[in-house]
């Protein structure tokens, strides 16, 4: 696809296998089973699926935290697996990740300042003064007061923690952010805040998102393209409007029919 900044080609990831001592062979699981996707620059690809469908495994492969068993993932024409092995810093300047558990993704023993400075120093080699300035800038980007930077993560609510997580990802100045269920742990009123923040950042910074969620309505709101995952495979993908208005695959239809609001209206 032209203009794709991130693409995957027949990506497979297997877990398990081998034998236990004196045991039965361990079952081998294909968490991701031949996924091919492409994300155009500046757009949002929504990936929808239920627990265990392999969407989080896919997300971790996209940012190089896991390597595919086979297949290729490319970012800006370079292999993610290759970069992960040879030049991790270059990779993480291109692609970042926001995690599901807002508090779990922040080291409880570091201040927000320290958390946000780490990528600035390690990835961009910024000086102390420049870092301080940039941290203040990042805090204002995610609508947090600058003085919060001196606090520890446990002093923040879930929504605020997720903003810090987003700021940490932004600190790397990436082209692509992979968001793994970024609003699932949040209350609806806070979830809306974070969704609006993400949309706003995308418009201002021209970011590309891979937005992973089990929540169809959220994905419909934020995505341009949508891929449905089921047991490690992408069973259907296409432009948002088409997928939701005219689902082709049985699983997509079942999912749509399962939403409480949806059934009520029919």
């Amino acid at each position: 696809m032209s203009g794709a900044v991130l693409s995957t080609q027949d990506v497979v990831r297997e877990f398990g296998g081998g034998r236990r001592w004196f045991g039965t062979p361990r079952p081998q699981v294909r968490a991701v089973d031949g996924v091919s996707l492409a994300v155009p620059r500046g757009r949002t690809l929504g990936i929808v699926g239920e627990s265990g469908c392999g969407k989080s495994t896919l997300a971790r492969m996209m940012v190089g935290l896991l390597l595919p068993s086979s297949g290729a993932i490319e970012i800006d024409g370079a292999s993610v697996a290759e970069l992960a092995r040879t030049d991790r810093k270059a990779l993480h300047r291109k692609v970042q990740m926001v995690f599901q558990d807002p508090l779990g993704s922040l080291n409880p023993r570091k201040t927000v300042q320290q958390i946000l400075e780490a990528p600035l120093r390690a990835l961009h080699g910024m000086e102390r003064a420049a870092r301080r300035e940039r941290v203040a800038e990042l805090m204002s980007l995610v609508s947090l007061r600058a003085e919060f930077a001196e606090r520890y993560p446990h002093e923040f609510s879930g929504g605020q923690s997720q903003r810090i997580g987003i700021a940490r990802a932004l600190a790397a100045n990436p082209e692509v952010i992979v968001l793994d269920e970024p609003v699932s742990a949040l209350d609806v009123s806070v979830q809306a805040q974070v969704l609006m923040l993400l949309a706003d950042l995308q418009a201002r910074l021209g970011l590309t998102y891979v937005f992973i969620s089990h929540d169809l309505a959220v994905v419909e709101t934020i995505s341009d393209e949508v891929a449905m995952m089921y047991f490690g495979k992408v069973v259907e993908r296409g432009p948002r409007a088409r997928i939701f208005a005219d689902p082709q695959h049985e699983y997509t239809k079942l999912l749509l029919a399962s939403i409480p609001g949806a059934r009520q209206k029919t």
């Binding site: 991790r88 993480h92 995690f99 993704s105 409880p108 780490a118």
Partner: peptide, 14 residues
Amino acid sequence: NADFMAAARLSGLT
């Protein structure tokens, strides 16, 4: 296995 370890890796720490 905590997410913040993955986040640190993504932050480019050795």
